[in-house]
Design a protein around this nucleic acid. Structure first.
Lengths: 250, 250
DNA sequence: CGTGAAGTTGAGTATGCTCAACGGTGGTGG
DNA sequence: CCACCACCGTTGAGCATACTCAACTTCACG
């Protein structure tokens, strides 16, 4: 509900100022989540002039590791994974991304990871030089970008703890909790969790094998912490016990 | 050499403009590395007005996980580690920081990690609200902060790959390489590497135990990739073979 | 209903952990 | 000045967690 009214206000502002804010932005569900948030309508119109939109099918790659990083993206719908590959096929998923998330703005000239759609997804694409320029011009945009990057860092630090020091079961518990907290679109009205990714993706994210992921889910199910899969959604029976497991004993 | 002349120029600029740029900044070794880089002397003077400096002894903590994040820091000398602790004592080091690095600028109100000095170290401390304000005012500062955060994200992604998918030996090899690349102050004139941290810190960074770290060093030594410890410095005998090991076979 | 992909379960194994002992080094005090 | 001690690093032996390989089940889709 709050989302809808925010969009309506955005539209009115744009109309009042007579700026050529595209309808896509005015109606954008993730506008108040993305780096666009905090920009005034004129600034947004300026930014929007350089936008192209892109729709992705499941499994489709948005960009590849070591490709030149010519575009920056905001996820507007669906789910995206980023990952690094080794020559022998080992894979590490570095993160899952949902509506409002910013991806493809690395330090260097090339993308350090590959980005691939997990579900049908849409992204807004900006030319990177444009973003650099606008960041210098609009402090609100700079602050929004900084906030996104800070979030990425904090989340990565938590993930390092998980990968380096947690048992398989603890990692799974922590993963489910982080989805509950940070991915509202994965949480159904009944409180269950729609995992947008395969077991293999979870395994590659948590540094485990599919078998170990599967066994850990079974353990949690037998312990009564989660319920049976119902149409690809996991019931969370006890969030508290999940939290206890995630942080370990003692 | 280049560093010295840069400092001299900085001093001259400040004098010419008549701004009250403190001597500490004018002579700062890490000025061209830190977020201060790119600021003109007046901007730097403005930023410097809010600086306090702090000297840390080995083992001294700069801030603690879940403390309110009231200050942001730039490392100006020495080595700092950041880490997360679990209730049962398990520890994950999330990063090592050297001259020019920015720490303590998280997304939320509290620090998500603890920062502790490994060696004698000095830091510049800025009040966080001030930084937020100046980031909005000086685009060059915003860009510098963004660059620092991007670097942190890229490095974290590499670390996730290491923790999630590499063997003990591969992790050690990758760790040595990253120090060679990213920590110039650890590299001696003879090309050897002064590890500023204990085996326990390396273990907690790489998600291993001290014993495994020690065994991996021994293996690399026996393989002729690194040389014997000489006064706490590791000789790098073959950087190429180190790189081969770090990325795995095939 | 048949087929292929995804997920689950089982048995055996390996990598890295635990526990324990030993050696080197630097700081301190007799 | 040297003995002592604490801390750090190394090495060894046995063990546990998660991996590998393999079979089987479930589900979506034709």
């Amino acid at each position: 509900m709050a989302h809808v009214s925010a969009n309506v206000i955005g539209l009115c502002d744009a109309a009042r100022h007579g700026s050529h804010l595209p309808l896509e932005c005015a109606n954008c569900v993730s506008r108040h989540l993305a780096m666009c948030a905090g920009l005034n309508p004129d600034e947004l119109a300026h930014l929007a002039r350089h936008i192209t939109r892109r729709k992705l099918d499941p499994g489709q790659t948005l960009f590849r590791e070591s490709d030149p990083a010519i575009s920056v993206f905001t996820v507007t719908s669906g789910a995206i994974k980023q990952y690094k590959l080794l020559a022998d096929g080992r894979c590490q998923v570095t993160g899952f991304y949902f509506s409002g998330d910013l991806i493809g703005l690395p330090e260097g000239a090339d993308y350090p990871v590959t980005a691939e759609a997990l579900t049908e997804a849409t992204v807004c694409s900006f030319p990177r030089p444009r973003i650099a320029e606008l960041v210098g011009r609009y402090p609100a945009l700079a602050e929004a970008v900084i906030l996104k990057l800070q979030r990425e860092v904090t989340s990565a630090q938590g993930q390092m703890l998980s990968l380096g020091r947690l048992s398989a079961e603890e990692r799974i518990a922590g993963f489910l909790l982080s989805l509950l907290d940070r991915a509202p679109e994965c949480v159904n009205v009944d409180g269950s969790l729609s995992l947008q990714m395969r077991r293999a993706d979870i395994a590659d994210y948590l540094g485990l094998t599919v078998e170990t992921v599967s066994r850990s889910f079974t353990k949690l199910r037998n312990a009564g912490v989660i319920g049976a899969d119902r149409g690809g959604a996991v019931e969370i029976l006890s969030r508290d016990r999940l939290a206890d497991i995630a942080t370990g004993p003692a």
